[in-house]
């Protein structure tokens, strides 16, 4: 009884979607303000070094930045489509759309990789001798901010990728259920005689055919593809929350793009 009570505490209100949403939004707030500190720093330094920021921004490749913006915008679209699909119980469609999201996110990271390595190749990275020697202080600040902010953003993209893999796992996982069945019935079902009988400890004891009539009840384990109404509704919440997180990553990029690439 007490064991039961202890677990009950953990899952008392699975149905309060609103509360779960409040929790998720508050978490997003903390993310916004985590970046917020950096945006404050950006705002301050841009006001101190307006010209240097323009000079430095001109060295970033607007084309790559724009392509990455499109990648993230599109991945945001595929996430919402996945959510709608799951809501309409189009499970396959949802899975495909999550894969598409993952693909765009990877594309974003690949682009970022080439962009960063080109810059690093030219000796522009935090603390590099070339950067410190050949560039004005304002430009150094610009690049320091650029690496910090896009780096932190990239980290969030990677975390998002991992989250989506988890969501995929949960959606594709087929539940295993254990049900009790009277032996009388089981032995008369065609084809069940060959099923393996396993002890509680997991040892193989033989097949159903070898059981004798003293057995009354048999636990049978079934792995099944649930019908629509039996699917775990928590998967939807998981995907939705992953989506919220992903859109936030998108929103942050929507600001990073003009602030670093377009203010030439």
């Amino acid at each position: 009884m007490s064991n039961h009570a202890a677990t009950m505490v953990a899952h008392k209100h699975p149905s309060d979607v609103e509360g779960a949403k409040i929790g998720m939004w508050l978490f997003l707030f903390t993310e916004v303000l985590l970046f917020g500190g950096l945006f404050i720093a950006y705002a301050v330094y841009r006001s101190v070094y307006p010209e240097a920021f323009q000079t430095a921004a001109a060295n970033l490749d607007t084309f790559i930045g724009a392509v990455n913006t499109l990648f993230l915008l599109t991945s945001s679209l595929t996430v919402v489509i996945a959510i709608v699909a799951l809501q309409k119980d189009k499970q396959k469609m949802a899975v495909w759309m999550i894969w598409a999201t993952v693909l765009f996110a990877l594309g974003f990271m690949v682009n970022k990789y080439f962009e960063w390595s080109a810059k690093i190749h030219h000796g522009i990275y935090p603390g590099s001798p070339e950067l410190l020697a050949d560039h004005s202080k304002g430009e150094i600040v610009f690049y320091n901010l650029y690496y910090t902010m896009t780096g932190l953003h990239g980290l969030h993209v990677i975390i998002g990728l991992i989250v989506f893999f988890f969501v995929l796992y949960f959606i594709k996982r087929r539940p295993v259920v254990t049900e009790e069945m009277p032996y009388e019935i089981l032995k008369n079902v065609r084809g069940t005689s060959r099923l393996a009988v396993v002890s509680e400890k997991g040892e193989e004891l033989g097949t159903v055919a070898q059981l004798d009539d003293k057995v009354e009840l048999v636990d049978i384990r079934l792995t099944y593809e649930p019908v629509a109404e039996k699917r775990d509704p928590r998967n939807f919440v998981k995907l939705e929350n992953a989506g919220l997180y992903w859109h936030l990553v998108d929103v942050i990029w929507i600001f990073l793009f003009p602030l670093f690439y377009l203010i030439t």
Binding site: V32, L33, G37, P126, G127, L145
Partner: peptide, 24 residues
């Protein structure tokens, strides 16, 4: 909820300066 993340990122910036030389 609203103030802690700001100091979080600030401390991270000091860590970054100490470890990677990103001297914001």
């Amino acid at each position: 909820v609203l103030a802690t993340p700001v100091v979080g990122i600030t401390l991270v910036l000091v860590i970054l300066e100490r470890t990677l030389g990103i001297g914001i």
